[in-house]
Amino acid sequence: MKQLTVLSGKGGTGKTTITAAFAVLAKNAVVADCDVDAPDLHMLLHPEVMETREFRGSKVAVIDKTKCTNCGLCKENCRFDAITGDLQVEAIACEGCGVCAHVCPVGAITLTERVSGSSYISKTQYGFMAHALLNPGESNSGKLVTLVRQNAKILAKKENRDLIIIDGSPGIGCPVIASVTGVDAALVVTEPTLSGIHDLERVVQLLNHFKVTPFVCVNMYDVNTDNTNKILTYCKDNSIDVVGLVPFSSEVTKAMVNGKTIIENFPASNVAGEITNMWKKLSTFLDL
């Protein structure tokens, strides 16, 4: 089984548009939306949910006010400022470490599991999909990414699929690390802006750190060709394959508004053509 992660460092570079197009082109893949903070892929692929599971990512401290003697030891020992002046747990800040429960002299504090979101196993027109949603204000998105990837793997095994395509989240922190570890290749979608270049370099370093082969796609490359050339030079100097230069097109937004992938909505467009070429190159590398 092969795994490909699409990511970007900087948000809004077109990661999800490209992942959705790949899902259509791949035909035999399971798609995993690992941008669990702000998942958007379902708006293009319209999954039909077959199974929903609660996600219990962490624990939270609960104070039994009938036992509490207001000694304040919990607040004093909490490193996360999660206990307020009137000794209430601020759930949003609590990391479930259990220190307060340990120091409480009267045993008024317990750790309880909290439901932080849901994970879904779904079917789309083009195959299967694993995705999830964090409840508003919940944390631990890295753990939920791990769960989505596990679900995708179980699906792939069960349905005999040989590829998992992962839509990653922006940044380089915990959810991103969770979405790239152990994959066969990563496609970094960037744009020819100073921010795009800066963030590309950081993501490539991250991929090197985790020994994942990076590929690069410059989206909207014609918005600033000087910057595109800088990206090409950077990639050449670092021996990174640039597998696609996708032009700017208002058709991308139109397709999004129509709730369709660019491949379905504008099959003859330049954007669809370039993404198809890119897909061919990646599938050759992945030996599909």
């Binding site: 669990v36 903070d37 702000a38 949003i92 998105s141 922006p170 940044g171 959810p175």
Partner: peptide
């Protein structure tokens, strides 16, 4: 702020 809606965003906007 960082993008997203989980821990980094929450810590930022607090």
């Amino acid at each position: 702020s960082p993008p997203g809606t989980s821990c980094p965003f929450i810590e930022t906007v607090r």
